[in-house]
Each structure stands twice: as C-alpha cells, then as structure tokens.
Amino acid sequence: MEMEIIPKKNHFNWFKMFWQGFTHMTKYGKTLWVLVILKLIIMFFILKPIFFPKYLNEKFTSDNDKASYVCTELFERSLKE
C-alpha cells in the first residue's frame, strides 16, 4: 500500500520565525548578538550620555540663547576688518 506524500504546511508566523530563529542560532550567531547588544549598550548608555552630550543643550535651554551664542562664537572666531 502506498501513502501519499503530504507536504508539511508552513503557515508563516512572525513570532514563531523569530523564536525558532533565536533559539536555534548557532554559536557564532549567539556570539554576534552578544557583541551587538554589548556594543549598543556601550554606545547609547555609556558613551553618549557621559562623553557625547549635546553641547548647546547643556549650556542653554532656549533657541534664542543658542542662536546668540553661536552668533557670538562665529563673530569672535572671524578675522575682523
């Protein structure tokens, strides 16, 4: 007696795809993810707030003050006639 070949139905499911993808990752894939997450944490939670604050936002709150400051800076640094 022969049985029919029954193709397994694949209903696409985003969650399942991600879940299976992450849980079945190879060692190199997991290493990469660790590196990516570590890198993003260092960049956004250490480097950015500690070493790269927005200079003008730290000194001034209003746009008028920032504009005045930049205008003064541009004038002071220029070579006057």
Binding site: F51, F52, P53, K54, Y55, L56, N57, K66, A67, V70, E73, L74
Partner: peptide, 11 residues
C-alpha cells in the same frame, strides 16, 4: 556632531 561640532550642528 552634537558635542564636538556644535556650531556646525546649529548652523
């Protein structure tokens, strides 16, 4: 841009 080049960023 925001830290080292603030005049540029504003301008």
């Amino acid at each position: 841009f925001g830290t080292n080049w603030s005049n540029y960023s504003w301008f």
